[in-house]
Design a protein around this nucleic acid. Structure first.
Lengths: 337, 337
DNA sequence: AGCGGTAGTCGAATCGATTCGGAGTCGGCC
DNA sequence: GGCCGACTCCGAATCGATTCGACTACCGCT
């Protein structure tokens, strides 16, 4: 079931079969038809390895994901799925590599074995050695999130700073004067995780601009912590009338806390945040939030990467996504003091 | 940076380099060392495509996932991650293919392009044409879940029937006489989705055995539906004192309903189910449940597949996982009528 | 001394595709 | 009639590895 077999059955040479398939040289309609008939009968497809060897490209993209031990967030999951679909639309396959920062075998195999034409790097850290490795290998890549030096690479990211700021402004417009930030876990913050840092920065800046008082109370990335967080907030900061959240994982706990403590939302407490749409809509009351466009991000990332593969010398492009805030039911005027 | 370059720099022939690397023939310690030095300096790795072409194997596994449009469940996600890690441990890469039942390009490319050495098929349906396609292509595969004819294939699955039955028995032991099943969505049931069917069958059988009355109330796979489901249950089946659930996606809604309606668990209503551990532990009160071992399933599936790749003629093996029920806080004695 | 065996190395074939150079045929045009 | 170009097609080289057969050198044994 190789090209030679097709050629034999169609009574032509191998090169003719190849040209008939690729269309790079003209082949008479009759032979083309004869070849196609044989192919349809046998169900032939060119061997991917042979083609990759000759052409020097694999028609495969590498997607470097965080290791399974760190549970993927819902948003990351959506991103992976959308990358795979976007790649499939371009007739490309996706090779997965679980990699925790330190160079590991899987990552090395993909990069130096030239198994892929380009790489998407998820969960990038501010200083990330994998970037250097890819650059050295001359492999096109796009990062999801950006590094300390944003100019040397192509990346796509969510504008957490801007989105959190928008939330704060929205809440301030409603008359709230004391706002709390429910950020990602202190561990991530300490590890230099970009989104957590930028959320913090955006919050601080917006609070300053509007002359509000901003409360930052640390919270781990899980439901139990979210519930606990709300209790702490009620106890130690009773004057807080609004919350901005970027912590999806803590939301179920937040929800539970609201129900259990009988907090009226938005009557007593307004909540605005950054979350995937289905999280926001699944919340009660439905959450006013900037809907993180995980699915769009996947296809944008693939697009960016394809562009780099096609023209590696092009200047780098950056996409900072700032989806609008969808007004739902969790924000309202501040309660009078 | 190919093997010829290494050979030239080390002053030996290409074959010697290859033998030094593979160890299939003896190479003198001195030349071996010289070759290794060159390799370390250049950072050489054999080209994956060339090797795949010659060896006839790609050192890659294919993982066929449901398309992104159907949101992956938490358990499926965990499974994907664990497959990737298990494969990485065996120095194998994983190629993703999103495929919704009907033969699509991505699936065809992987199969007939011989891009992988074996395939893991997720979300299999009772009648699944992909199985026939793989068999015809002579590609080893393992299915996650089993088809109508379970003997012709190797598969791994969760014993939903057994687990649901266990839940029912546990609840019956506690004195419950009227039990409801919170199954997967009617659409899945209609589509012949195995887990939903087997949950239903296991429930019916256990209920019959114990002479209980079993309630089946359909519920979609999302939080809002879960909340609605509980309302319906309370309204139309007030005599139900216990629930068995296999619907993870509906759980947040169930939780919310419990809080909002003020249902005492387990005082008024006992709940036992099948769910990933962190879902069960995230529930309030913590859920008595059979913890679906998504992470183990991944490595088991890879193991099974590697076995089939190594010895394709071996008789098929099947793994039906039935994890024990972990007693937590959501089940208790039936309330007296 | 002659012979067999082994360790170490090389050259060439091979995997299955793509692609370049060239060869043959045919028609049109001067 | 001869030449040029277009249209078809073929043969051979090539991509980068693995592997088989063969060759040399050296050792030990009779």
């Amino acid at each position: 079931m190789n090209i030679g077999e097709i050629a034999r059955r169609a009574g032509v040479s191998r090169s003719t079969v190849s040209y008939a398939l690729s269309g790079r040289r003209s082949v008479s309609p009759e032979t083309k038809q004869r070849i196609q008939a044989v192919i349809d009968e046998i169900g032939y497809r060119p061997n991917a390895a042979a083609r990759a060897l000759k052409e020097g490209r694999t028609r495969t993209l590498g997607l470097v994901i965080p290791p399974a031990s760190l549970r993927l967030t819902d948003m990351q999951l959506g991103f992976v799925a959308s990358v795979v679909e976007a790649a499939a639309r371009a007739d490309l396959d996706v090779l997965l590599s679980p990699s925790g920062g330190d160079h590991d075998r899987s990552f090395e195999r993909i990069v130096s074995g030239r198994r892929v034409d380009g790489v998407l790097l998820m969960e990038i850290r501010l200083e990330d050695e994998r970037v250097g490795r890819l650059r050295q290998a001359g492999l096109p890549f796009v990062t999801i999130g950006h590094t300390a030096d944003p100019h040397g690479t192509s990346w796509i990211d969510v504008d957490y700073a801007g989105l959190v700021a928008r939330c704060v402004h929205h809440l301030a417009d409603l008359g709230h004067r004391t706002i709390a930030l429910l950020n990602r876990s202190p561990e991530l913050l300490a590890a230099g995780y970009g989104p957590a840092h930028r959320a913090q920065a955006g919050f601080a800046e917006a609070v300053r601009q509007r002359g509000l008082s901003g409360i930052e109370l640390p919270c781990a990335d899980d439901p139990a912590a979210g519930e606990e967080w709300l209790e702490q907030l009620r106890e130690h900061h009773p004057d807080v009338t609004a919350v901005t959240t970027v912590n999806e994982a803590a939301m179920p706990g937040l929800q539970r806390g609201i129900e259990r403590l009988g907090v009226a939302v938005p009557g007593e407490l307004s909540i605005a945040g950054v979350a995937a749409r289905h999280w926001a809509e699944g919340f009660r009351p439905q959450l006013t939030a900037a809907d993180v466009p995980a699915l769009e991000m996947g296809s944008h990332a693939v697009e960016l990467l394809l562009e780099r593969i096609a023209t590696p010398t092009h200047p780098h492009r950056h996409l900072l996504l700032a989806p609008p805030i969808s007004l739902r039911d969790s924000t309202g005027p501040a309660r009078p003091d």
